[in-house]
Design a protein around this nucleic acid. Sequence first.
DNA 1: CATTGTTCTGACCGATCGGTCAATATCGTT
DNA 2: AACGATATTGACCGATCGGTCAGAACAATG
Lengths: 219, 219
Amino acid sequence: MTAETADQDNVGRERIEYCILRAAEQVFSQYGYRGASLQAIADKAGLPKANILYYMGSKQALYVRLLNRMMSRWNAVLEDITPESDPGRVLSEFIRTKIVLGQRYPEGSKLFAAEILAGAPFLNKYLSGELRDWVASRAAIIRQWSNQGKMDDLDPHLLIFLIWSATQHYAEYSAQVTGILGKEALDEADLESICQFLEQVIIKGCGVQRPDASLAAPR
Amino acid sequence: MTAETADQDNVGRERIEYCILRAAEQVFSQYGYRGASLQAIADKAGLPKANILYYMGSKQALYVRLLNRMMSRWNAVLEDITPESDPGRVLSEFIRTKIVLGQRYPEGSKLFAAEILAGAPFLNKYLSGELRDWVASRAAIIRQWSNQGKMDDLDPHLLIFLIWSATQHYAEYSAQVTGILGKEALDEADLESICQFLEQVIIKGCGVQRPDASLAAPR
DNA sequence: CATTGTTCTGACCGATCGGTCAATATCGTT
DNA sequence: AACGATATTGACCGATCGGTCAGAACAATG
């Protein structure tokens, strides 16, 4: 087997795997792990069911792979945050990034939500391990911001939870949001309004000081 | 059949139905509609599977009944809100009530979340009907508060979504929250901290004026 | 063309799914 | 005791579940 053919093989394999993963993400996100069926995934991918298992091994392996893919998509968020950063800018970027990710990967977001709803049987180690450390390190920096007088003295964990929940809401609860607003889907203008609303309320609610302001009055 | 026996019969029937509904709520909330099985519900209720169907008719009827029960539990929220109300008090009570409801009915909250995740196949009429009207009427009052200068000029729908998402998070994402905080469960002190945090950030973030303050400076 | 290794898939497996039904058990009324 | 109504449940149904496997189809090398 030459390197060339190996590459082509891998390219072909990856194209099929991507197709399967995309179909599986839709089905798993809608019905959860137990409610999803390999037959439904196969139908959506346009492949026979046995082919899904040939490429993915098992339903569980396919599901875990989707979870890992979604976790890695979130890794870039809040990566370059330091005690010297401007809280307003960081929180604003945090909010916008999470909203964008939710819109970019709506099925992945719902997949994650369904996993948590089920009690995180496949993610509890990740939640109380990597993710907990991730949150702790960011919380420590936010705490320093408070001590520096850059913002109010608030529990950083609860602030992170607030931004998570408020932003993910528009990905996971899209059925409720569109139903109540009477829209087919959220357009760019809606998303911009949502981002501005959340930035304004949360940044103001945390008492974030303008970076140039020293200790001047709020107005 | 006398009235007395009828009462006793109904009491007995209601006791069994309550037992079934409780077991079903746990299973449906964890696995979603498709992922839940009548056998699992029957095992949890300590009854043979055929008995579940005798009392509930079908899986779908049981599920719809659970959804309706959960919707009715939420009906009391924000019931007595008027343009003359104090926004700070109303928002504070709104937040606390939703937190308490989420803690009181964690399975019901997750059941609702799973239904929305699946695209609200059984609730889309409710969402774009009753619930939309409910939100619209409350949004109109919040709008009046803004016009009266009681708070900032914000999209009331997004404010309601914010409070919904931020409070429901602690019911539906309990697995994530406890995993990250490293706790088995949230205790009373945790809930009080969460309520105070959300009240402070959201009320301040919305620029809610103290009711006694006329047009004085924020401090 | 023959060979070899990979890709693909129809057929099948035991288990479980939601739901039906007939037989049995229980109970209040007469 | 006898009866009709309701409650209960084991057995069963066709469909579907996740997964296996033998063999067809295929492409690359000799």
